[in-house]
């Protein structure tokens, strides 16, 4: 199945060359996948990620992701 992945801030260094503004399609061989597995498939170091949103909602590491979902991945950040 296919997912839309968006990487932000310092994580954009891990995006494939064809990615535009950190966004790319991810082909997942199996029919279901967890947040944790997506991070591994994207080659993201575990410690570099703090927030993952699936379709705008914060998702836990073991959350199962549906086909065509938009997965947004953020490093530690703050501001205000």
């Amino acid at each position: 199945m296919k997912l839309k992945v968006k990487l932000f801030a310092t994580l954009r260094q891990y995006a494939p060359a064809e990615a535009r503004e950190g966004e790319f399609a991810l082909d997942v061989p199996q029919k279901s996948v967890t947040v944790e597995e997506v991070l591994r498939l994207c080659g993201l170091p575990e410690h570099a990620v703090t927030v993952v949103m699936v379709n705008g909602m914060v998702a836990a590491a073991n959350a199962v992701i549906e086909e065509d979902a938009e997965v947004s991945i953020f490093p530690p950040l703050a501001g205000g």
Binding site: K6, F8, A9, T10, V51, M53, G56, V58, S72, F74, P75, P76, L77, A78, G79, G80
Partner: peptide
């Protein structure tokens, strides 16, 4: 040593929040 005060804020400033808040709707 903290990734927020040592990386995110120095590299991007507070504007790094734009995409985060937008993605969170």
């Amino acid at each position: 040593a903290n990734p927020i005060t040592a990386q995110a804020l120095p590299l991007f400033g507070t504007a790094v929040l734009v995409n985060l808040l937008n993605q969170a709707r």
